[in-house]
Structures are given as structure tokens and as C-alpha cells.
């Protein structure tokens, strides 16, 4: 099989020397996975190279790292597809988590977030006693499975901008996990789960980074949005959910009545008079206050909008 020489630049790290880059040259063919590249570097050139790897088929979630700056699983990355025009590849550890050694990071903070969402099915007592069987439609199974496919690789949390700024945000993976149980007809703890998840859901900024980096296509941001769909059923109140409720109800109301959003109305209803006035002053200063009075026409055929927005079918 045709082989090509590649250069792999690895950002190494240890407690004594700190971080430094080291380059390795080796040959790879068109099938060579990055896990195999690392294994060969370790066994042939640098036995001290530290990284995690287990299944090499993208189900164990061990080999998370940044390859050419992209949060990736090494096993899912084919070396020759990842090289640049100079046949080089840059490999470094994931962002956000504290470094331990070379490509190994301490992802305890990731696990802790997972544990916080009661990540286990609580079935009805009669089922646990074996008195009743559980049924589940194929459609329900499909959706639950989608969010259950998370392999704890930690890539989404390493790349999430909200997690970095907000300790109280549970992060994408834990939300997908938490929602998977909310969504499961066999579970009995829906309201407890909403208590765990709802406030945090509104700490997500919907930037789709988790969707982008997830090697399993779990789409955590969609799980978060689906959790927010339960806001009307959620009985609790936190400062975050109170504000979100105001904001989202106003959006919905505006669309229902005019088909469009008026940002100025939205600001006023969401932030209250005081904050909206501060915004208005900023607008005045910027010379953009006039835009607050821009009046776009409402949707003409509002019947279409109203009929579409009717009760959930």
C-alpha cells in the first residue's frame, strides 16, 4: 500500500518541564488512524508519550484531543486526511480541562456534571418488581437512543463557550443525558429532572459548537432546546427561568399577533422598564435610537400564522 511520510507535531506536557512541542516523522497509508499513529510513535520513537486510547472505533470516547485545532477523536481521524499541504499534523490536548501529561487531561469536571443530572432510569416500582413489562414505541426508542449515544468523550464540554464562563451551566453532554431520561416514557421522575435541568438549559447560548464537535452526532444543543420546550410544564422559578419565561412569552406573543418581532418591545418586556431605558440611552448616544421606531408591516395573512401556531398536534 502506498505510504507517505508525515510529520506529527505534538504538544507535550509534564509537571517538571511544562508544555513544549515535539515533532515526529513516520510513514502512514490512507487507512492509518491517528490512534495508530500515536501508538507507533510511542512504541517506536518516544515511549514516554502519554495519551488515552481504547476501542479505536469511536465507541469508548477515550482518545479526545485537538487535532489541527479541531476537537476530535484520534481514532476517527485518518492521518493522511488531516495533514496540511506540508504533510504536517498538530496534536494537542483538549481545551478547558487541566492538563495532566501530554495529551491526557483531567476531565473529572465533565464526569461531575454528568452525575448531577441523575443519569439513570427510575422505572415504576411494579416494573422493578417484575409485575409489569415496559413498552416503548419505536419512535420513542429512536429519540431516546439518539441522546443516549453520548460516549462521555468530553469534547463538547471542552469546546463549549458557556461552560467556560458559567460554572452553573451543566454543559452539553449532561443535558443530552438528562433529557434522554425526560424523554423516556419508562421513567417516573420527570418533574425532578426538570428541576435539575431547566435553569441550566437557559444558560446555553445555542451556538451549536457541541453539535459540531460531537463524534456521535448526539446534537446536545437540540436536547437543550427540547428541554426548554417543557418550560410551560415546569413549576419552579429561578431568576434565569423567570427572565427566560418573560422573554420567550413576549417573542411568542409578538409573532402570534404581528408575525414579527419588535426588538424594542421585547427589551421592554424582558428587562423591565429600568434596564430598557438604559438601553434606550445607549441607543440615543449611538445615534441609533431612531431605529427603535422602525415600524415594519405586520404579516398580512395572520390567519396562516395563527393556525400554524395552534396547540401541539
Amino acid at each position: 500500500m502506498e505510504e507517505k511520510e508525515i510529520t506529527v507535531n505534538i504538544k507535550k506536557y509534564n509537571d517538571k518541564d511544562g508544555a513544549f512541542w515535539k515533532s515526529y516523522k513516520l510513514k502512514a497509508d490512507k487507512y492509518t488512524q491517528m490512534t495508530e499513529v500515536l501508538r507507533r510513535i510511542k512504541s517506536e520513537q518516544d515511549p514516554s508519550l502519554a495519551y488515552r486510547a481504547s476501542c479505536h472505533m469511536a465507541v469508548c470516547g477515550s482518545c479526545s484531543m485537538k487535532i489541527n485545532g479541531i476537537p476530535s477523536l484520534a481514532c476517527r481521524t485518518i492521518a493522511l486526511q488531516a495533514v496540511d499541504e506540508k504533510n504536517e499534523i498538530n496534536v494537542e490536548s483538549m481545551d478547558y480541562y487541566p492538563g495532566v501529561r501530554d495529551l491526557i487531561t483531567d476531565i473529572d469536571v465533565f464526569y461531575d456534571k454528568m452525575y448531577k443530572v441523575m443519569p439513570r432510569l427510575i422505572a415504576d416500582e411494579s416494573v422493578l418488581m417484575g409485575e409489569n413489562e415496559q413498552r416503548m414505541t419505536p419512535e420513542n426508542q429512536t429519540e431516546v437512543w439518539k441522546f443516549q449515544e453520548c460516549i462521555y468523550c468530553g469534547l463538547c464540554v471542552s469546546a463549549c463557550p458557556s461552560v467556560k464562563e458559567d460554572e452553573q451551566f451543566l454543559g452539553p453532554a449532561a443535558h443530552a443525558k438528562g433529557f434522554r431520561f425526560i424523554d423516556d416514557v419508562r421513567d417516573t421522575k420527570k418533574s425532578e429532572r426538570l428541576d435539575l435541568l431547566m435553569d441550566s438549559a437557559y444558560r446555553c447560548t445555542s451556538c451549536y459548537m457541541c453539535y459540531e464537535v460531537c463524534p456521535q452526532d448526539v446534537q446536545p444543543v437540540i436536547a437543550i432546546k427540547k428541554t426548554k420546550n417543557y418550560l410551560d410544564q415546569y413549576k419552579g422559578n429561578t431568576p434565569i427561568t423567570i427572565m427566560a419565561r418573560k422573554h420567550d412569552d413576549t417573542v411568542e406573543n409578538l409573532i402570534e399577533t404581528t408575525g414579527k418581532i419588535k426588538e424594542s418591545t421585547l427589551f421592554l418586556k424582558t428587562f423591565g422598564f429600568g434596564e430598557a431605558m438604559r438601553d434606550a440611552i445607549d441607543m440615543l448616544k449611538s445615534g441609533k435610537f431612531k431605529y427603535a421606531f422602525e415600524k415594519d408591516s405586520n404579516v398580512k395573512n395572520m390567519n396562516e400564522i395563527k393556525n400554524m401556531m395552534g396547540e401541539k398536534k
Binding site: 445555542s206 432546546k225 427540547k226 426548554k228 420546550n229 418550560l231 422573554h247 420567550d248 417573542v251 411568542e252 409578538l254 409573532i255 408575525g259 414579527k260 418581532i261 404579516v299 400564522i305 400554524m308 401556531m309 401541539k312 398536534k313
Partner: peptide, 20 residues
């Protein structure tokens, strides 16, 4: 045209959002 509800309406109701 109507508001797409981008970023917010799908938080309320995915089907309404998609329909819009």
C-alpha cells in the same frame, strides 16, 4: 414573510418553529 423565530421559537416549540 414572517419572523423565523430563530434561536427562540424552537425553545418554545420545535414544530411551530419549523412551520414558521
Amino acid at each position: 414573510w414572517n419572523c423565523c423565530g430563530g434561536g427562540f421559537m424552537d425553545d418554545k416549540n420545535e414544530a411551530v418553529h419549523a412551520s414558521l
